[in-house]
Amino acid sequence: MNLPPDELQAIRVAARWYARLHSGIATDADRTDWRTWLAADPLHSQAWQRMAAVAEQMASVPGALAAPTLSDTHQRSRRQVLRSALLLTSAGGLGWLGWRSQATQNLFCDYRTAVGERRAFQLADGSTVLLNTDTSINVRFDGQQRRLELLRGEVLVTTAVDPLRRPFKVVTGPAEVLALGTRFIVRSQAWGGEVAVLEKAVEVSLLASGSRMRVEAGQRLDFNEQSLGALRGNDVSVGAWQKGSIIAIDRPLAALLEELSRYRPGVLRWDPAIGDLKVSGVFPVDNTDLALAALESGFSLRVTRYSRFWVQVSAGHRR
């Protein structure tokens, strides 16, 4: 990323101030000088906000993984902290790129959930949204429309009657979903997305081509940039996450593990040789270790935990 020289310099100075203030040896005079620098130029304030955003993102990294970043500053020298801060904020540094990444940009969305979290919000018009794990949305209401932008993850929307009769739309990736007085789920995927309707109906439109399709209660639809998929019926697995479960019915193990990985931090890997094994059952998303233990005992698998954040699933010994 190429930044203007004055902006890059402000970021570097902000990194030095961050290192100083978090070194454990900052004085009252240092804090006074920092406030003076901060107020001297709007670029300084912007650079400091960016530095703080990177620090917040790094603070959410699990302890062992965060060791080389900005955590544990009281146990490290000012020079070590400064080196990390400069790495995070340099034009080519991984931390600065991370701030520009989608994950870090989500820090500035209107509503979001962490990995493993589900949370409900009521919007200004009385509609409610239930965000699944690792989900972020923006809400844009004006006099003409009610618009929800699904940046990542999955959301259950229950629309309220609007006295102004403004349409309620959810936009994610290549598609727009128009609510027709309804409850529905939208999930963003790398390849496009999915819509499942629980009550009433929605209309799904591709933004590029204008192709559209009505989806009724009890139906679901996949979409990508090029096309809308075929309508399919909902089954008991649709929306089971609302009550903290994944319901699998003859589901390939690889697909189930990929779904479980959404609810746990770190890395969950599996041997491709067992990926096609068909699995049925109800698995808790609030305790993925328990879900893995159930798979291990019920399907003759071996779960190897290299650490809390690195788990491998492979074939076990047949009884």
Rank of each mutant, 00 (worst) to 15 (best):
G63M: 01
R50V: 03
R319N: 13
T158W: 00
W270E: 09
T159A: 10
E296M: 00
F184P: 02
G239D: 09
L38Y: 14
L107W: 15
W34N: 08
I246R: 11
A91S: 15
A293Q: 12
G281Q: 00
G233S: 15
T27W: 07
A240S: 12
A240Q: 04
G239I: 08
R187G: 08
V282I: 06
A85P: 09
S237G: 12
R119E: 12
G181E: 12
A40T: 10
D134S: 09
L257D: 00
R79P: 00
L180P: 06
A254M: 08
Q312S: 11
V161D: 14
E154S: 09
P167W: 01
H74E: 06
G24W: 13
R140T: 13
T36D: 06
A315D: 07
G210S: 04
A254C: 00
R165W: 05
A217R: 12
I11S: 03
M213Y: 09
V155S: 04
P62K: 08
S237R: 05
G173T: 13
I247T: 00
T182N: 04
S227L: 08
D134T: 05
P167F: 01
G95R: 02
G239W: 14
G92A: 14
R183H: 03
R118N: 11
D276P: 05
S297M: 09
R214Q: 13
V313S: 01
S307M: 05
S245T: 13
W17P: 06
V279C: 00
T89H: 07
E296R: 05
V311F: 11
W17G: 06
G266S: 10
D250N: 15
Q144T: 12
F283T: 02
V186E: 13
D286L: 07
L82Q: 13
R318H: 11
R214P: 00
V157L: 09
A201S: 08
L221R: 03
R308F: 06
L290N: 11
L131N: 08
G193P: 08
T27L: 03
F299Q: 13
R83Q: 15
R302W: 02
A124P: 07
R118W: 01
F108V: 01
A124M: 12
R318S: 07
L21V: 11
M213C: 15
F184V: 05
F223K: 03
Q145H: 01
P252V: 05
L88C: 15
E203G: 03
G153V: 04
W270R: 10
L8C: 09
F223S: 08
W37I: 09
E149F: 12
S245V: 06
A240D: 03
E258D: 11
S205K: 01
R78C: 13
R152F: 08
G281D: 02
T69V: 03
V236T: 04
A208C: 09
V155W: 04
R232P: 04
A160G: 14
V13Q: 11
V170N: 04
R12I: 00
L151F: 10
D33I: 06
R305K: 14
T27K: 02
L260H: 02
